[in-house]
Structure formats: C-alpha cells, structure tokens
Design a protein around this nucleic acid. Structure first.
Lengths: 203, 203
DNA sequence: GTCTATAACTCGATAGAC
DNA sequence: GTCTATCGAGTTATAGAC
C-alpha cells in the first residue's frame, strides 16, 4: 500500500479517479467524490485535468494498457499451443487479480462506443488473434488435438479467464463467499483453466 | 418487429426505457432520451412511472425474470448431469440471443449494489447452485467423471455461456465480424459448449 | 498550486392548462 | 392522458484571491 503523503497531487488524483470511475463508470462518477478521495477540492481537479472526460480518458488508457499488451504478446509468441494456453490463463488471472474490476469497466466502455475503440485499442495493426487461430488450425491438421473451431476455442479460453471477474459480485452472492475465498478460487484457476481446456482438446 | 402504433403508451415507454437503460445503465440514462424514443414528453413518463428509479426497477425486474428462473429450474432438475449441462448451455444461449445486452446490464447493476440484489434476485431461498454441486460430487465419487471442483466446473460452464455476450462488442471488434456472423457463432455454441465441457470431464 | 465562491448547465420532477 | 413551461437539486467548470 502506497502512502498518500509520498504521492504527488497528480498521483493522488489518478489513484482516486481510478477507484471512482471503475466503481461507478463515466456517467456515475462525480468529480466531488474524486476530489474528496484525493483529499483536495474540485477546482484543483480541473487545474490538473481540464475536464471530467479528459480525466476519464487517462484512467481508461491506463486500464487497457494493463490488460491488452501482455495478451497480445502471449497470443503471438512462438511457443507450443499448450504452453500458450498455460501461460495466458496463468498470467491473465494474475494480472486481473490485482485489479478485479478492470474487465467490467473496460468492457462497459467498449460497449458504449465500439467504434472509438477499434482505433484506441489496436490502432492500425490487426489484433493478434489470427496468429493463434492459425496455430490451432495447424495442430488440428497435424492430428495433435481434436478438431475444434479456433474462434470458439479462443472464446472459451477468454471466457473462463475473464468472466469470473466480470461476474464477481454475482458469484460471491450465489456461492456465499467472501473476498479471501474468492481470491483463493481465482488463484486455483490459474492452472485449473488450462488443465480443463487441454483435457478437452487433447487426443 | 412490433409496430409502435399498435402499442399503448405504457408499452411504448417500456420499450424505449429498456433500450435506453440497457445501453446506458441507470446513471447514464436520461429521461429525455426515453421520452424522445417513446415519442412522448418527460411529463408523461412521470405520469406513468413516478420516478426514474421506479421505471428502472420495472425494466430490471423484467430483465432478471427472463434470465434467472429457467436457470434455477434446470440447475435443480433431476435429470443426469450431462443432460443438465446440455440443456443449460443450449437454453441459456437461446434466451440471451434474443437479448444479447441483458447479461452486461444485469451484471453491472448487481455490481453497483450487490446487497440490494441478494434480496431481489433470490428472496430468502438459497440459490440453486448447491443441488448441482452435490450432483457433480456424486458423479465424481461414483467414478463417472474426472475429479474437478464443482464450483469451478459450474463457473466454467457459466463463463462460456455468458461471457461471449458480455464481451460481444470486443469480440466483434477483434474478430472483425458483423451481427449475423456473431449470431451464427452463438448458434453453434448452443451445442459446442456442452461438447467441450463433457470432453474435458468424461472418463 | 491550492483554495473559496459562484457561474453555467444538466436533468429529474412538478404545476397547471387543455 | 397529454402537453408546455418551469422549478430546483445536483454537477461540471471557471473566476479570482492567496
């Protein structure tokens, strides 16, 4: 835990804004709450970041920059398929465990303005799904794994990694578990998801 | 497509409100937008539904009543495990295909007020996960399926059903597919998900 | 850089005519 | 039931002193 007193004002604002935006979304967040949480006043918020929208942009970019680059790297890396699956599920869950509400936050914003994000997220270079899909195709043709649509396999993997966090409050409600128990479950999933997938497609 | 002219004012409001709330959430939605979309004015909204919150409640209840009762029924039904898996994945995807944005909408609101919903969703009776979990335990002990934590198996199943809809815009972006192609993929998943799960746990 | 005070605006809600 | 007009609370944003 970083001490607030050692942070610059800008850092305090960013930390506070992240929390408020992630919890409430763009529309639900209030500048007053951010100011309070940062221990300053509204005027100073506007001094550092011109407007609510601009502040939001910064937070959002920080969030996506945490989630996507590693994913891209693993998806396009040259290691064997099963290693990709193991590494991806392990790393993704690990990253998101530190920021459990990020996936819902990001998915919401993509949902609200899908077109703005095809630019923001990927720029002009294609997302790295194709390379992984091709690798899956090859493994099938070589007879190393059971036939399955690459797209579906990738969606299955993503689903089992991302959904538990998106549905965290619902899962906690339904299963009646606290923060620590949830965390422990997710720790288990780091290896469990890969095992589950591989058991399904292995010949 | 239902003609607006054959709808009562109340129906027009509900249809408009559903769209606006589902797209923007409670905080993001504006009564003016709902009125416009319904072809009436704000005053009339308040005449039919006292406040924004009350209108939201109605929409939200309609949404959850579409999603949860069937799930509960299937989870606690007395058919064999593999049939539960097949029936659940098939029916859930079918229901949500008609309302692709419902899951994200519902999860968001649960996320924002988890406690309010433990009441609203389940009332006083426990959610029906326990019965399914017990069934899984039994199958493992009988040696009919490979050992796996029931909680994780259930989460895996839910994940693969729900996530594709929650992440719909992102998936469409990354895979570069249109509405129809997305729909076709989800149609395939009705049986694919069950096959995938069963292949993984079958002995 | 940081504050107080306040302007400017958005939006839910109501009054009152028809 | 439906409308126009308007109020009033809450929020973003700015002006101006320190």
């Amino acid at each position: 835990m970083v001490k607030k007193k050692d942070q610059t004002t800008e850092e305090k604002i960013l930390a506070a804004a992240k929390k408020v935006f992630v919890e409430n979304g763009l529309a639900g967040a209030r500048m007053q709450d951010i100011a309070d949480k940062a221990g300053i006043n509204k005027a100073l918020l506007h001094y550092y970041f011109r407007s609510k929208e601009k502040l939001f942009e910064v937070i959002f970019k920080e969030a996506t920059s945490k989630l996507f680059p590693r994913v891209s790297a693993i998806f396009s890396s040259d290691i064997p398929l099963f290693d990709i699956i193991r590494q991806f599920t392990n790393e993704y869950v690990e990253i998101v465990l530190e920021n459990p509400y990020l996936p819902l936050f990001v998915l919401n914003e993509i949902n609200k303005q899908p077109h703005a994000f095809s630019q923001k997220l990927f720029g002009n270079n294609q997302p790295p799904v194709h390379k992984l899909a091709e690798k899956i195709e090859k493994e099938i043709k070589k007879g190393l794994i059971k036939p399955i649509s690459p797209a579906h396999l990738i969606i299955n993997m993503l689903s089992m990694c991302v959904f538990p966090f998106v549905g965290k409050p619902m899962i906690q409600l339904v299963m009646n578990i606290d923060e620590l128990q949830f965390r422990n479950m997710m720790e288990q999933r780091k290896t469990l998801i890969a095992d589950f997938i591989i058991a399904s497609i292995k010949k």
